[in-house]
Amino acid sequence: MCQCETNEKVNELIEKKQYYHSYQPLFRFSDWELVGYEAFFRCESFTPEVLFTTLLEQDLMYELDTTSIYEAITSYAQSMTSAPKNLFVNILPSTLLHPSLPSFLEKLQATNSVPNRYIIFEINEAEQITDYRAFGEAVRRLRQDGFRIALDDVGKGVASLQRIVEVEPDYIKLDRYFATDLSSSEKKQRMIQLLVTYCRNHTFLILEGIETPEDLAAAKVLGVDIGQGYVLGKPGSLHHMNS
Protein backbone atom coordinates (compact mmCIF):
# COMPACT_ATOMS: atom_id res chain seq x y z
CA MET A 1 0.00 0.00 0.00
CA CYS A 2 1.45 3.38 -1.01
CA GLN A 3 1.59 6.29 1.45
CA CYS A 4 -1.29 8.16 -0.20
CA GLU A 5 -3.53 5.10 0.14
CA THR A 6 -2.48 4.73 3.77
CA ASN A 7 -3.33 8.36 4.46
CA GLU A 8 -6.75 7.97 2.87
CA LYS A 9 -7.48 4.87 4.93
CA VAL A 10 -6.46 6.62 8.15
CA ASN A 11 -8.80 9.51 7.37
CA GLU A 12 -11.57 7.02 6.66
CA LEU A 13 -10.79 5.23 9.93
CA ILE A 14 -11.41 8.44 11.86
CA GLU A 15 -14.42 9.67 9.89
CA LYS A 16 -16.26 6.34 9.90
CA LYS A 17 -15.02 5.27 13.35
CA GLN A 18 -13.65 1.99 12.04
CA TYR A 19 -12.30 0.94 15.40
CA TYR A 20 -13.55 -0.36 18.72
CA HIS A 21 -12.47 -0.73 22.34
CA SER A 22 -11.80 -3.75 24.51
CA TYR A 23 -12.10 -3.48 28.29
CA GLN A 24 -9.85 -5.29 30.76
CA PRO A 25 -10.63 -5.57 34.50
CA LEU A 26 -8.37 -4.49 37.35
CA PHE A 27 -8.61 -6.00 40.83
CA ARG A 28 -7.58 -4.77 44.28
CA PHE A 29 -5.38 -7.31 46.05
CA SER A 30 -6.49 -6.54 49.60
CA ASP A 31 -10.01 -7.91 49.06
CA TRP A 32 -10.06 -8.95 45.33
CA GLU A 33 -12.63 -6.22 44.68
CA LEU A 34 -13.13 -5.16 41.05
CA VAL A 35 -11.57 -1.69 40.82
CA GLY A 36 -12.54 -0.90 37.25
CA TYR A 37 -11.56 -1.40 33.61
CA GLU A 38 -8.98 -0.15 31.16
CA ALA A 39 -10.20 0.73 27.67
CA PHE A 40 -7.94 -0.45 24.83
CA PHE A 41 -8.15 1.05 21.35
CA ARG A 42 -8.44 -1.64 18.69
CA CYS A 43 -8.17 -1.33 14.91
CA GLU A 44 -8.05 -4.16 12.38
CA SER A 45 -6.83 -2.04 9.45
CA PHE A 46 -3.38 -1.04 10.74
CA THR A 47 -0.62 -2.16 13.02
CA PRO A 48 -0.11 0.29 15.92
CA GLU A 49 3.26 1.36 14.48
CA VAL A 50 1.90 2.25 11.03
CA LEU A 51 -1.12 4.02 12.48
CA PHE A 52 0.98 6.05 14.93
CA THR A 53 3.47 7.10 12.22
CA THR A 54 0.73 8.10 9.77
CA LEU A 55 -1.16 10.10 12.39
CA LEU A 56 2.00 12.03 13.20
CA GLU A 57 2.70 12.74 9.54
CA GLN A 58 -0.85 13.98 8.96
CA ASP A 59 -1.12 15.86 12.23
CA LEU A 60 -4.17 13.79 13.17
CA MET A 61 -2.96 12.46 16.51
CA TYR A 62 -5.12 14.80 18.60
CA GLU A 63 -8.22 14.11 16.53
CA LEU A 64 -8.01 10.34 16.87
CA ASP A 65 -6.93 10.47 20.52
CA THR A 66 -9.89 12.60 21.62
CA THR A 67 -12.34 10.72 19.42
CA SER A 68 -11.15 7.45 20.93
CA ILE A 69 -11.44 8.81 24.48
CA TYR A 70 -14.96 10.06 23.84
CA GLU A 71 -16.13 6.79 22.29
CA ALA A 72 -14.50 4.66 25.01
CA ILE A 73 -16.22 6.59 27.79
CA THR A 74 -19.56 6.89 26.01
CA SER A 75 -19.73 3.17 25.21
CA TYR A 76 -18.77 2.33 28.77
CA ALA A 77 -21.47 4.62 30.18
CA GLN A 78 -24.14 3.11 27.95
CA SER A 79 -23.21 -0.40 29.08
CA MET A 80 -23.46 0.20 32.81
CA THR A 81 -26.51 -1.20 34.59
CA SER A 82 -25.28 -0.53 38.13
CA ALA A 83 -23.02 1.93 39.95
CA PRO A 84 -20.03 2.83 37.77
CA LYS A 85 -16.55 1.49 38.34
CA ASN A 86 -13.35 3.32 37.47
CA LEU A 87 -12.50 3.59 33.80
CA PHE A 88 -8.86 4.00 32.76
CA VAL A 89 -8.46 5.67 29.36
CA ASN A 90 -5.18 6.42 27.60
CA ILE A 91 -4.23 9.95 26.64
CA LEU A 92 -1.13 11.28 24.90
CA PRO A 93 0.94 14.15 26.38
CA SER A 94 0.44 16.10 23.14
CA THR A 95 -3.32 15.83 23.60
CA LEU A 96 -3.04 17.22 27.12
CA LEU A 97 -1.13 20.20 25.74
CA HIS A 98 -3.40 20.80 22.75
CA PRO A 99 -5.21 24.19 22.82
CA SER A 100 -8.53 22.53 21.95
CA LEU A 101 -8.52 20.14 24.91
CA PRO A 102 -10.58 22.41 27.24
CA SER A 103 -13.44 22.58 24.73
CA PHE A 104 -13.26 18.81 24.25
CA LEU A 105 -13.52 18.27 28.00
CA GLU A 106 -16.54 20.58 28.15
CA LYS A 107 -18.26 18.49 25.49
CA LEU A 108 -17.30 15.28 27.28
CA GLN A 109 -18.70 16.45 30.60
CA ALA A 110 -21.88 17.80 29.03
CA THR A 111 -22.74 14.53 27.30
CA ASN A 112 -21.20 11.90 29.56
CA SER A 113 -23.12 10.22 32.39
CA VAL A 114 -20.07 8.75 34.17
CA PRO A 115 -18.99 11.09 37.00
CA ASN A 116 -15.54 12.59 36.44
CA ARG A 117 -14.14 11.00 39.59
CA TYR A 118 -14.52 7.56 38.00
CA ILE A 119 -12.45 8.49 34.93
CA ILE A 120 -8.69 8.05 35.19
CA PHE A 121 -6.59 9.44 32.37
CA GLU A 122 -3.55 7.24 31.74
CA ILE A 123 -0.72 9.37 30.40
CA ASN A 124 0.92 7.36 27.67
CA GLU A 125 4.69 6.86 27.39
CA ALA A 126 4.66 7.07 23.58
CA GLU A 127 5.72 10.73 23.49
CA GLN A 128 8.38 12.79 25.21
CA ILE A 129 7.46 15.80 27.33
CA THR A 130 9.53 18.89 26.57
CA ASP A 131 7.61 21.52 28.55
CA TYR A 132 6.95 20.23 32.05
CA ARG A 133 5.53 23.55 33.22
CA ALA A 134 2.76 23.52 30.61
CA PHE A 135 2.30 19.80 31.11
CA GLY A 136 1.90 20.24 34.86
CA GLU A 137 -0.69 22.95 34.33
CA ALA A 138 -2.69 20.69 31.99
CA VAL A 139 -2.66 17.93 34.63
CA ARG A 140 -3.84 20.41 37.28
CA ARG A 141 -6.78 21.44 35.09
CA LEU A 142 -7.85 17.80 34.76
CA ARG A 143 -7.71 17.40 38.53
CA GLN A 144 -9.70 20.60 39.06
CA ASP A 145 -12.46 19.04 36.94
CA GLY A 146 -12.42 15.97 39.19
CA PHE A 147 -10.57 13.57 36.90
CA ARG A 148 -7.73 11.43 38.24
CA ILE A 149 -4.31 10.72 36.72
CA ALA A 150 -2.31 7.56 36.09
CA LEU A 151 1.14 7.15 34.59
CA ASP A 152 1.18 4.22 32.18
CA ASP A 153 4.02 1.76 31.43
CA VAL A 154 6.25 3.12 34.19
CA GLY A 155 9.69 1.54 33.93
CA LYS A 156 9.53 1.24 30.16
CA GLY A 157 10.53 4.76 29.12
CA VAL A 158 13.50 6.86 30.16
CA ALA A 159 11.33 9.70 31.50
CA SER A 160 9.30 7.61 33.95
CA LEU A 161 10.98 8.73 37.18
CA GLN A 162 10.83 12.42 36.27
CA ARG A 163 7.17 12.09 35.37
CA ILE A 164 6.41 10.45 38.71
CA VAL A 165 7.97 13.38 40.56
CA GLU A 166 6.48 16.10 38.38
CA VAL A 167 2.96 14.68 37.98
CA GLU A 168 2.41 13.11 41.42
CA PRO A 169 -0.07 10.66 39.88
CA ASP A 170 -2.99 9.04 41.65
CA TYR A 171 -1.99 5.72 40.08
CA ILE A 172 1.36 4.34 38.89
CA LYS A 173 1.02 1.50 36.37
CA LEU A 174 4.16 -0.62 36.23
CA ASP A 175 5.11 -1.99 32.84
CA ARG A 176 4.42 -5.69 32.25
CA TYR A 177 8.18 -6.34 32.23
CA PHE A 178 8.07 -6.34 36.03
CA ALA A 179 5.29 -8.92 36.15
CA THR A 180 7.05 -11.47 33.94
CA ASP A 181 8.78 -14.05 36.17
CA LEU A 182 8.32 -11.77 39.17
CA SER A 183 8.04 -14.78 41.50
CA SER A 184 11.59 -15.92 40.62
CA SER A 185 13.34 -12.56 40.12
CA GLU A 186 14.82 -11.02 43.25
CA LYS A 187 15.86 -7.92 41.30
CA LYS A 188 12.31 -7.21 40.17
CA GLN A 189 11.01 -7.90 43.66
CA ARG A 190 13.43 -5.37 45.18
CA MET A 191 12.46 -2.73 42.64
CA ILE A 192 8.77 -3.25 43.31
CA GLN A 193 9.37 -3.05 47.06
CA LEU A 194 11.00 0.35 46.56
CA LEU A 195 8.00 1.60 44.60
CA VAL A 196 5.56 0.17 47.15
CA THR A 197 7.37 2.20 49.83
CA TYR A 198 7.33 5.34 47.69
CA CYS A 199 3.63 5.04 46.86
CA ARG A 200 2.44 4.24 50.38
CA ASN A 201 -0.50 6.41 51.54
CA HIS A 202 -0.66 8.70 48.49
CA THR A 203 -0.48 6.70 45.23
CA PHE A 204 -1.94 3.36 44.14
CA LEU A 205 0.57 1.00 42.54
CA ILE A 206 -0.78 -1.17 39.69
CA LEU A 207 1.12 -4.05 38.13
CA GLU A 208 0.17 -4.75 34.52
CA GLY A 209 0.63 -7.90 32.48
CA ILE A 210 0.31 -10.52 35.23
CA GLU A 211 -0.08 -13.87 33.48
CA THR A 212 0.63 -16.62 36.03
CA PRO A 213 -0.74 -17.47 39.50
CA GLU A 214 2.83 -17.48 40.87
CA ASP A 215 3.53 -13.93 39.71
CA LEU A 216 0.10 -12.84 40.93
CA ALA A 217 0.85 -14.22 44.40
CA ALA A 218 4.27 -12.54 44.44
CA ALA A 219 2.76 -9.15 43.58
CA LYS A 220 0.24 -9.46 46.39
CA VAL A 221 2.89 -10.46 48.95
CA LEU A 222 5.11 -7.54 47.89
CA GLY A 223 2.33 -5.08 48.67
CA VAL A 224 1.22 -4.03 45.18
CA ASP A 225 -2.23 -2.44 45.46
CA ILE A 226 -3.91 -3.48 42.19
CA GLY A 227 -3.34 -6.13 39.54
CA GLN A 228 -4.13 -6.36 35.85
CA GLY A 229 -3.38 -9.16 33.42
CA TYR A 230 -4.60 -12.29 31.67
CA VAL A 231 -4.58 -14.34 34.87
CA LEU A 232 -7.19 -11.94 36.27
CA GLY A 233 -9.15 -11.28 33.09
CA LYS A 234 -8.51 -10.71 29.40
CA PRO A 235 -9.66 -7.63 27.48
CA GLY A 236 -13.11 -8.13 26.04
CA SER A 237 -16.34 -6.57 24.89
CA LEU A 238 -18.60 -4.64 27.21
CA HIS A 239 -21.22 -7.39 27.62
CA HIS A 240 -19.01 -9.34 30.03
CA MET A 241 -19.19 -6.51 32.58
CA ASN A 242 -22.82 -7.20 33.32
CA SER A 243 -22.79 -10.98 32.93
Score class of each variant (00 low, 15 high):
Met1Leu: 07
Met1Gln: 01
Glu5Met: 09
Glu5Thr: 07
Val10Leu: 05
Glu12Asn: 12
Lys17Ile: 00
Tyr19Cys: 07
His21Glu: 05
Ser22Cys: 11
Gln24Pro: 08
Leu26Met: 15
Phe27Ile: 15
Phe29Thr: 11
Trp32Tyr: 15
Glu33Leu: 13
Gly36Phe: 06
Gly36Glu: 11
Phe40Gly: 07
Glu44His: 15
Ser45Leu: 14
Thr47Met: 07
Pro48Val: 00
Leu51Met: 09
Phe52Met: 01
Thr53Pro: 00
Leu55Ile: 04
Leu60Gly: 04
Leu60Ile: 00
Asp65Trp: 09
Thr66Gln: 00
Thr66Asn: 01
Thr67Lys: 13
Ile69Ala: 09
Thr74Tyr: 11
Thr74Arg: 14
Ser75Ala: 09
Tyr76Glu: 02
Gln78Tyr: 11
Thr81Pro: 00
Thr81Glu: 15
Asn86Phe: 11
Leu87Asn: 01
Phe88His: 03
Val89Pro: 07
Thr95Tyr: 07
Thr95Glu: 10
Thr95Asn: 08
Leu96Gln: 06
Leu97Ala: 09
Leu97Ser: 06
Glu106Asn: 13
Thr111Asn: 15
Val114Cys: 07
Val114Pro: 05
Val114Met: 04
Val114Glu: 06
Phe121Gln: 12
Glu122Gly: 10
Asn124Thr: 14
Asn124Lys: 09
Glu125Leu: 05
Glu125His: 08
Gln128His: 10
Arg133Asn: 06
Arg133Met: 06
Ala134Thr: 04
Gly136Pro: 04
Glu137Pro: 00
Ala138Ser: 06
Arg141Ile: 02
Arg143Cys: 07
Arg148Lys: 14
Ala150Met: 04
Gly157Trp: 00
Ala159Ile: 10
Ser160Glu: 02
Ile164Trp: 03
Glu168Leu: 03
Glu168Ile: 00
Pro169Leu: 06
Asp170His: 13
Asp170Ser: 11
Ile172Thr: 05
Lys173Pro: 10
Tyr177Ser: 01
Phe178Tyr: 13
Ala179His: 04
Leu182Trp: 12
Ser184His: 05
Arg190Gln: 14
Met191Gln: 12
Met191Pro: 06
Gln193Met: 12
Leu195Ile: 14
Thr197Met: 10
Tyr198Gly: 01
Cys199Gln: 09
Thr203Gln: 08
Thr203Arg: 06
Ala217Arg: 10
Ala218Lys: 14
Ala219Lys: 02
Ala219Pro: 02
Ala219Trp: 05
Val221Met: 03
Leu222Lys: 08
Val224His: 05
Val224Phe: 09
Leu232Gln: 08
Lys234Gln: 15
Ser237Leu: 13
Met241Ile: 15
